[in-house]
Amino acid sequence: MHKDTQAIHAAMEVANQTPDIVPPVHRSTVYEIDKEGRSEGDWHYTRLENPNRVQWEHVLKVLEEGEAAAAFSSGVAAASAVLQALRPGDHILIPEDIYAGNRRLVKEVLQPWGLEADFINMTDLDNIDRHLKENTQLIWVETPSNPMMNIMDIEAISNLAHDNDAVVCVDNTWPTPVNQLPLNLGADLVVHSTTKYFGGHSDILGGAVVTKQENEFFEKLRVVQRIGGAVPSPDDCWLLARSTRTLPYRMRGHNENAMTLARYLQDHPKVEKVYYPGLSSHEGYEVAQRQMSGFGGMISFLIGGNRDQAVDIIGKAKLISRATSLGGVESTWEHRRSSEGPDSQTPENLIRISVGLEHPDDLLEDLEYALG
């Protein structure tokens, strides 16, 4: 089935023993054990498993075309579980411009725990090859990257990683499975902040990992999920599955609006450079064309000025909200450097915009006012 159909029907395919078209929310934290005793696979305790999480994880694995999924309470919790499935002393490679929250996770939590990590330029395959070590167990890919929109070749990196017995995990939060399917390009795992486009309305926190195969590595990750306990509530799972029913249609709107705004910004006299993989001027355009079916709702651009001028432009908008997250139906933007902390490599004159689903003419008018 097409993604539009899968997004609507997948949640109703499992763990729904009622005639309800919309599965109910199961808020109970415990389940009655059979008088003959508990058997493998029985519902037991909601941290370990519950019907709404099973339904939500089924939607995720179907859309990403994987074998299994594990849902978490946030995107960083999902990323943490992937890295905790490794062992102290293991080495990983990470993009130098990785999402700031995951950068802090690695530097402040997992490196002190014993993980070895190198932050490198991953747009250059030879550079990745040079940084591989005997103990390299995982290569983390984020494409497009946040916020510089660097494009990494998932298939080429996966081939290189597998030749060296390493796992590839792709952060697919920005593209979503509507625009990019990393598992079909050779990646082993996909991670999401489902807070963003899956939720789509800026009102649900969540994360997820989807695996190409239910193998030993994923089982370790599942243990981290169930024993560590950073799981979403039944209500959050229900809301995420509900919101995902409109994901394919929403993403088409995000894609179209973002392309319209990117072309406008590219021609604006106060804009130095636009980072959007759908523009032929983007350095990663050819790779993006090959591995993406749509280019997402995120744009970064440099204004001709300094930090104060960038902040001033953001403050003038009447419609586009000043906020740090992304993926909602409403458009938001921010001076990204201010959100990232002392390790940020983001230019001081960069603005990142999450293009929402408002009418594009209204967004263009607001941009013209703010930039003018």
Rank of each mutant, 00 (worst) to 15 (best):
L132S: 10
L132A: 11
N135P: 02
T136Y: 01
T136W: 01
Q137I: 06
Q137W: 10
I139V: 14
V141H: 08
V141M: 10
E142N: 14
E142Q: 15
P144T: 05
N146G: 07
P147H: 12
I154H: 09
E155W: 09
A156S: 12
I157L: 04
S158C: 07
L160E: 04
L160H: 08
L160W: 08
A161K: 08
A161M: 07
H162L: 03
N164T: 03
D165R: 12
A166Y: 00
V170H: 11
D171W: 09
N172R: 06
N172A: 08
P175L: 08
T176M: 06
P182G: 02
L183G: 01
A187N: 04
A187M: 04
A187G: 04
D188W: 05
V190E: 00
V190W: 05
V190F: 05
V191A: 14
V191G: 11
H192V: 02
S193C: 12
T195D: 03
T195M: 08
T195S: 14
K196C: 12
F198N: 06
F198S: 06
F198T: 07
G199M: 09
G199F: 12
S202W: 15
D203G: 09
I204R: 13
G206Q: 12
G206R: 12
G206N: 11
G207T: 11
G207Y: 08
V209G: 00
T211K: 11
K212I: 04
Q213E: 14
F217Q: 09
F217K: 12
F217T: 08
F218L: 10
K220P: 08
R222Q: 12
V224F: 15
Q225N: 13
Q225L: 04
Q225Y: 13
I227D: 14
I227R: 15
G228W: 15
G228S: 13
A230Q: 11
V231I: 15
P232F: 02
P234K: 07
W238F: 15
W238L: 09
L239C: 10
L239M: 13
A241P: 10
R242N: 09
T244H: 06
T246M: 10
L247H: 03
R250G: 01
R252Y: 10
G253Q: 05
E256W: 09
A262L: 05
A262D: 03
R263M: 00
Y264A: 03
Q266D: 00
Q266M: 00
H268F: 00
H268R: 00
